[in-house]
Amino acid sequence: MSDIILFAHPTFGVFGILAAVWLLVEVLNASETNRARIRSASYAVAICIVLAALLGGYWYTVYYGAEKAIIVKGPWPWAHNFVMETKEHLFFIPLILALYLPIVSAQNLARNKASRLVTMTVAAFVVLNGLAIEGGGAIINYGVKVAFVHTGIKGAE
């Protein structure tokens, strides 16, 4: 079960990033005809990022302790000390931005250039933060792997 949660966390993160790109494209082409799609995309970002936060948060608070102990004893302790410590707090930035998006997109963005600019800025930072966090997750995962390889446990490689 913990593996399902572990893999669902970055999966919803990627869905959130993709939804933010979708939102960016819709807002760049904002008109009366795509108002519903703009709202759908903004809600998709919010739902996916909230799910990524809940799943990742549950896994982090319940299961991560054992992996942390392995990482800090391995050759890449910075995978926890720097990457995870930064990632776990950085995650709250796209979470807040994602919660904000449905509020902005409730406006008629086709008629409001200022709200379009704000929406595109927020969506762009969800994408940038999301990509950084996904990359961080990969490094943390590799931090566990190199720790196992370092110990010479058979099959770890």
């Binding site: 707090h89 709250f92 930035i93 807040i96 931005l97 919660l99 904000y100 509020i103 902005v104 409730a106 406006q107 008629r111 409001n112 250039k113 200022a114 709200s115 704000v118 927020v122």
Partner: peptide, 24 residues
């Protein structure tokens, strides 16, 4: 009118910016 955002966008946008700094 076009250069200003509506009340909720301004209020929660400013709140988001402050919350992001508060988080750090």
């Amino acid at each position: 009118g076009r250069s200003q955002v509506d009340g909720a966008t301004a209020a929660f946008g400013l709140a988001a910016a402050i919350t992001i700094l508060f988080n750090t």
